Amino acid sequence: MIKAILVFNNHGKPRLSRFYQYYPEDMQQQIVRETFHLVSKRDDNVCNFLEGGTLIGGSDFKIIYRHYATLYFVFCVDSSESELGILDLIQVFVETLDKCFENVCELDLIFHVDKVHHILAELVMGGMVLETNMTEIITRIEEQNKLEKSEQSLDAVLLRSLSDKFTKI
């Protein structure tokens, strides 16, 4: 089971954190800090999995990560998860973000937090993997975007009709 998904930049600033197990907020921040220190000090040519830090469960848990440009994508999982499966899941997540934001960057994660969380929710919910087919995920995201646009146009029509009524009064 996935315990946490963390994305932070090269300086350790969290850009996305999603915990699927309850931790108090101060403990979450400590976990992000500890995970960053564990992952950032590793060379680029070493294995992308390691034992979990002391705060997230120690040797019973694994940290699986990928480093892309200025961002670390980190999944903290229990020992039942496949390391290679999670690496593939990270790849699907990053490629989906890349398609949705047309060459995703750190600023996309900052300014479009809601959309990033929605994409993540299409992949993982409650710590369990839901979907790994990128085409299916993108189809669901596009459907959501269409729905949001139709709601915005409906809201605009309602606002116009209300403003027309108030100007007549």
Rank of each mutant, 00 (worst) to 15 (best):
N48C: 06
K41R: 10
F61R: 15
K62H: 15
L71C: 03
K62Y: 14
T70R: 04
I56F: 11
R42V: 04
T35Y: 06
Q29T: 01
E34W: 00
V39S: 11
V46L: 12
S59E: 15
H37Q: 10
F49R: 05
D44N: 14
Q29C: 00
A69T: 10
T70F: 02
D43I: 01
E34N: 01
V39M: 09
Q30L: 01
C76I: 15
E34H: 01
N48V: 05
Q28L: 04
K41F: 10
I64L: 06
D43C: 01
I56V: 15
K62I: 10
K41V: 08
D44E: 15
R33H: 05
Y65A: 02
G52Q: 03
T70N: 08
F75G: 04
E34S: 02
R33V: 00
L55E: 14
D26W: 11
F73E: 05
D43T: 03
L55G: 07
G53T: 15
Y65W: 12
F49L: 02
D43Q: 07
T54E: 15
D60N: 14
Q29D: 03
A69H: 06
L50P: 02
S40I: 05
H67Y: 05
Q29V: 00
L55P: 09
Q28K: 13
K62R: 15
T70D: 13
I56E: 13
I64G: 04
D26G: 02
Y72K: 10
I64D: 13
I63F: 12
E51N: 09
T70Q: 06
N48I: 06
I31Y: 06
N45R: 07
H37M: 08
F73L: 06
L50V: 14
V32T: 05
L38Q: 15
T70I: 02
Q28M: 09
T54N: 13
R42W: 03
E25L: 04
F36I: 02
F49H: 12
K62T: 12
F36A: 02
V74C: 11
V39K: 07
N45V: 03
N48A: 10
Q28V: 02
V74E: 12
N48H: 14
V32G: 00
Q29A: 01
H37D: 08
I64K: 05
I63H: 12
I31A: 05
D26N: 13
T35M: 01
G53E: 11
E25T: 08
Q28W: 06
F36V: 04
Y72A: 04
Q30D: 07
S40T: 10
E51I: 00
H67N: 08
F36M: 02
D43G: 04
G53P: 11
Q29P: 00
L50I: 14
N48T: 11
Y72T: 06
D43H: 04
I64Q: 12
S40E: 13
H37E: 11
V74R: 06
K41P: 00
G52R: 01
S59C: 13
V46E: 15
L38G: 03
D26L: 05
Q30P: 00
V74Y: 09
M27P: 00
V39Y: 11
T35N: 02
C76G: 11
N48P: 04
S40K: 10
R66F: 03
V39T: 12
H37A: 09
Y72G: 04
E25W: 03
E25I: 07
H37W: 09
R33F: 01
H67P: 00
E51F: 05
F36N: 03
